[in-house]
Design a protein around this nucleic acid. Structure first.
Length: 302
DNA sequence: GGAATAACCTGGATGC
DNA sequence: TGCATCCAGGTTATTC
């Protein structure tokens, strides 16, 4: 499931191959991969062909490629991997991938011709051509860019905890106003971006916070501890190439990450807590699952 | 306005 | 073996 570390691995792999490249052609195989695009497949293809890609940027789980082009508006290709999206770099003319939805043929002045393949099993991910708008804080739009702009559909997404422009004071103040469970708040991308179900469970386990504790009751010290653990979990996952359970997530070369071997709570129902040895439990939580240690993560600790 | 919930989707796992 | 059902979860529209 692509969360911040997985998307960052994809961005880092994509950047050297696409920066300075020109889009030769676009093939849309499945228009369901354009749910965030305002037009149809033909509109997407026409808007992209001939454009120069200036780089690869990311905020939270959103990835975008800023575009140049004579007489063209300030735009970017925005990608969201959803639950099962993959962006792969392939040789020109490479065989169609399983679940391939969109292919961009590009030419890079140093690397020659390449194909960018967007494949997605569950079709929750998408690509879109979107206008770039100024950031509200005048800081760079995200990781991998110095431009103070973001795609319009990413503008409502909060900065992620690894972003230098992330403001912990604003985060603490937001939590103090939230009656919702802390895990729900961590998953709210308008509060803090990049965290999904896996890393929310892992960070809460590391910080010894029960996932259903109301956010507003957490002390400043506890919120600081949580943020430190969120940073640590994301950094470690990034260093290990992300999490992969079943080839749902791969880097641009189709390789899986190793962080699944480092998980302490997520997906470990019934297995001993690495800290106290008591079994990890799984509870249903807003259409998904929460995994935690009921002994280490008592609600009263808040 | 804030919070909670349903819907979207595919394929693997499970049960009968 | 084949069919039906459940489950995984990020985002957004809808409802309360």
């Amino acid at each position: 499931m692509p969360e911040l570390p997985e998307v960052e691995v994809v961005r880092a792999g994509l950047a050297p191959a696409v920066t300075g490249a020109t889009v030769l052609g676009v093939t849309v195989l499945d228009e369901r991969a354009l749910t965030r695009h305002s037009g149809d497949g033909a509109h997407f293809e026409a808007g992209l062909s001939g454009r120069l890609i200036r780089g690869a940027a990311r905020r939270g789980k959103f990835l975008w490629l800023p575009l140049d082009g004579p007489g063209r508006p300030s735009e970017a290709v925005v990608a969201h991997l959803g639950m099962s999206g993959q962006i792969l770099l392939r040789a020109p003319g490479a065989a169609t991938e399983r679940h391939e939805r969109i292919r961009l043929d590009i030419h890079h002045p140093d690397h020659g011709d390449l194909a960018i393949v967007f494949a997605d099993q569950r079709t929750f991910g998408s690509l879109a051509l979107d206008a770039l708008v100024p950031t509200t804080d005048a800081a760079p739009g995200g990781h991998g860019t110095v431009d103070a702009s973001v795609p319009a559909q990413v503008a409502h997404i909060a900065r992620d905890p690894l972003d230098p422009a992330f403001r912990t004071g604003v985060f603490r103040a937001t939590l103090a106003r939230k009656d919702s469970a802390i895990k729900r708040v961590l998953l709210d991308q308008s509060v803090v971006s990049g965290i999904g179900n896996i890393y929310a469970d892992e960070a809460l386990w590391a910080a010894r916070i029960h996932p259903e504790v109301p956010a507003r009751v957490l002390s400043t010290r506890t919120v600081n501890r949580l943020l430190a653990e969120v940073d640590a979990v994301l950094e470690k996952a990034l260093a290990e190439g992300g999490t992969s359970f079943d080839a749902q997530y791969v880097n641009v070369n189709g390789q899986s990450g190793y962080f699944a071997h480092s998980l302490n709570a997520y997906g470990r129902t019934g297995q001993p807590c690495p800290r106290c040895g008591r079994p990890i439990v799984r509870v249903s939580f807003t259409n998904r699952s929460s995994h935690f240690c009921p002994y280490c993560q008592k609600p009263s600790r808040a």
